[in-house]
Nucleic acid binder design. Structure first.
Lengths: 224, 224
DNA sequence: ATCTACATGTGAAATGCTTCACAATAGGTG
DNA sequence: CACCTATTGTGAAGCATTTCACATGTAGAT
């Protein structure tokens, strides 16, 4: 049979597909631990509450990784998915804002597991600057631009209050960073070539609230 | 002109619309602080990087809140959106797992602001049980079921390791809780009438990673 | 060698979501 | 009052995503 290497696809891949790739990755990691050699789209779908057709279609955007009658080879597919997601490498990440959220993220295991290494911390609070968090010394945010550059940072996580987030992002953008994960509940303005993803933890609680007061049935209810 | 009270709509509201309601709410809160009396769909859209048509369509699912030629009354629309989302009230929330993430969430301001009151904490670690976090004493997870019930908890936030999350959720479900926000990177199995929303912070970094290695243009790039 | 069971990969259909475009209408101006 | 500008609310069109359904292919059993 022919090798089909995963490749950058011609068509634009949807946001949902990319998010599902993350789900496949985590399911495959587990399957690998459980010593599965192959897995069907059906099983993969069941584990992440998706449909088999969706799993197959998602994967098919990137190549043809399975064997008819058998399914997908777990270890190999995991490697391919991690390659597609770009997490088959280490990313150098800086974290700005060592408050509640920031402190939690420094020790967040899932980041490390997936190659996101927080190697730099920034804050503006004199009591925090110079202190040590998990082996990293907190830098003064005044030196943001120069230090981001000197340390070859590729991604930045913003965990500062909404009121100052935009000013900080402006500096981050000037430091030529192209990927920002934002925890501040505000819409950041950046140039068109900078990627921003927002993490808004209250939003999902609001969704639950909405669902409760509107008897919104959970997705997939009544399918089993 | 006629009053159009917001009402539970006939059609199923999409997940994206609900999430955008959260964005409208936060934009309106800001506009209110800035003493705007009215706001157009155009301005609202600009502030949250959406399109005016989308704003109008989203709102129209719930009623007719604006005035042609003028826009929407800020304070009133905010009140209506918060009512639609069910955040015009207090929700009694329990938080399970007082690790990195859990500790951060106890002090997370956005929750309180929107009516999500964490009134109960649980952990299984003897060193943590009995300790005081922001005025709340950590309970033993052994008493989960009874205490959730006795304290009229309506929502639960799960911030425990993935390996034990399912066991805990089983108890939560038995305690008749219908809304769960899950921070563990695992797909929780629950009965069809229980709402689960997942918060996976690594997922958004993976998206950024994908975007970077695939020169995936940011959404909306080239529109300005 | 043939048959059966299983499962992928994929066009095409179905469904869902977003954007368009315009009638309706409010408010201001002369 | 007539007119002009601004902006909503909404069917309908356009576009995107999901699901269907089946041809294709593999492995194992007899």
């Amino acid at each position: 049979m022919e090798e089909t290497p995963e490749s950058t696809p011609r068509k634009r891949i949807s946001e949902s597909t990319i998010h599902r790739l993350s789900l496949y990755f985590r399911a495959l990691s587990l399957l690998e631990k459980e010593n599965y050699e192959t897995v069907s789209s059906k099983e993969l779908a069941k584990r992440e509450k998706l449909t088999p057709a969706q799993v197959r279609k998602d994967l098919s955007f990137f190549g043809s990784f399975g064997t008819r009658g058998l399914g997908y080879p777990v270890t190999e597919l995991k490697a391919r998915v991690s390659r597609i997601l770009g997490i088959d490498r280490v990313w150098r990440v800086a974290l700005i804002g060592i408050g509640n959220i920031g402190s939690a993220l420094v020790s967040y295991k899932e980041f490390i597991k997936q190659g996101f290494h927080i190697v730099k911390l920034f804050d503006n609070d004199q009591r925090k600057i110079g202190s040590n968090h998990k082996g990293i010394i907190v830098s003064d945010i005044k030196n943001l631009k120069t230090e981001l550059h000197e340390d070859n940072i590729e991604m930045v996580v913003i965990a500062v209050p909404a009121t100052v987030a935009q000013y900080i992002v402006d500096d981050v953008v000037e430091a030529n960073i192209k990927a920002i994960l934002n925890f501040a509940p505000i819409n950041l303005k950046v140039p068109p070539d900078v990627h921003v993803r927002n993490e808004n933890m209250a939003m999902e609680l609001e969704y639950l609230s909405f669902a409760m007061v509107n008897n919104h049935m959970p997705k997939g209810a009544g399918k089993n």
